[in-house]
Nucleic acid binder design. Structure first.
Lengths: 235, 235
DNA sequence: GCGCCGAGTTGATCCAAATCAAGTGATGTT
DNA sequence: AACATCACTTGATTTGGATCAACTCGGCGC
């Protein structure tokens, strides 16, 4: 049962025993979304938070002029909207939309509060999760404020792209997770700028073939982007 | 006893009874800081979070080139560093420094975890507080990404400055809380740009006299800055 | 095979903010 | 009173990214 497996692996439920996990699985709902479908709108009452079974969900704000700012993009196994659900106003501050066909687990606040009352570890797990989101936002604010477009693109490649291959000499090939237009909006640059920024990384051994990006020198790229090499997943 | 009064008023301890509040006050430490003193550094073990008794504390990151990015500034009665203390790594991700002579209440994580275990409302209060911080970061990311410098300055005047006076015809005078250099760094613009941006708000009825800013038409300013007028404190 | 559409790229130009430099006025020290 | 320092402002110039336009290429439908 895929839902139970995903719950088991979620950091939200670390250290929780199997019986309780099964009980949780019973109280959660699966929800399927097609590409572009809205899960919730900014201002909606925040009754549920979510864990992703498949696909990608983007959280965004939209200005009065219709300009979209992507705050975060979440993928398989990740949770989101916890902060909104436990905020004082209990309203979603952002729009949630699926980038492609997706499936999410919906966890009701009322149910989770009962769990917290039974066992405070649930609260601590939740705090851990929200803290990770907050850390990400701090990083993004720093990136947008003090890094150039090429640095931001390079940091994205190193931090958020799944490795396809990695050879002993350090050369790696990573996959862009979704359309370049989504990536560029997430990095707060325009698609034309994304193209130019990617091209500017060629001196650091970066070449692109559709969604497959080859990085000949990950450490040089990390240095250029002012990214801690130790922070890169699986490096 | 000022410490107890501040704790009483803190949203972290909303609905907690007087006896428990007194007990909490006993387990917390006061800490005095002089202007420019560092409270904690990025990477330090996060053992305590804080509530401010007096003065201002800024949280910032510093790039390899030494450029400072101010993530947030906190003032009287506000709490900070909760997320770091309850994160998985339990390390501060930012530097904390006092902008001027300040005094803070230090709350140990171990003590607070005991409180959570005794009464889950402590966890819910903490979640509310961290959610508010996260909401602020989302707003900042949106501001930096899609608003011009004058819009950001105007939004700051409306949202974060204490009202000195407000007359029946809507004219208000607000005070800048600290140096313009700190404000400009917080808004991710340079001091020269801050000066020019402030001047550009004159058509919206904004005039400055040292730290006192007169806003003849707050609603027009709110409209220009794409700020919800309803969101402005005490409007 | 052809036409259309979407995703992405490239070229030319513009502009908001940064950078660099110099100046002003208030405050603090001697 | 004189001088130094700090906070801030103003002027001139540069620049990274946006904007606007046009193009390329691959996928899809007929």
């Amino acid at each position: 049962m895929e839902l139970l497996q995903t719950i088991k692996k979620s950091p939200l439920f670390l250290t929780i025993n199997e019986e309780t996990l099964k009980d949780i699985a019973k109280h959660c709902r699966k929800k399927k979304l097609y590409k572009g479908q809205e899960l919730f709108a900014a201002g909606n009452n925040a009754e549920n938070f979510y864990i992703i079974l498949s696909g990608w969900i983007k959280l965004s704000r939209i200005s009065r002029e219709g300009e979209e700012v992507i705050i975060h993009v979440f993928g398989h196994g990740e949770s989101f909207a916890e902060a909104a659900v436990f905020s004082d106003k209990k309203k979603y501050p952002v729009y949630a939309q699926s980038i492609e066909d997706a499936e999410v687990i919906e966890i009701p606040r009322s149910f989770f509060i009962k769990k917290i009352e039974e066992d405070s570890r649930f609260a601590l797990r939740l705090l851990g999760s929200i803290s990770a989101h907050q850390h990400y936002l701090v990083q993004q604010l720093e990136q947008v404020t003090s890094r150039t477009a090429p640095q931001r693109v390079g940091a994205f490649l190193l931090r958020f792209c799944k490795k396809q291959t990695e050879s002993p000499d350090g050369v790696m090939v990573v996959d862009l997770p979704y359309d370049k237009a989504i990536i560029s909006t997430r990095l707060s640059i325009k698609p034309e700028t994304f193209s130019r920024a990617l091209a500017k990384l060629e001196p650091y051994g970066v070449t692109a073939d559709k969604r497959a990006i080859t990085i000949k020198s990950p450490e040089a790229l990390a240095d250029f982007c002012d990214v801690d090499y130790d922070e890169i997943p699986c490096s």
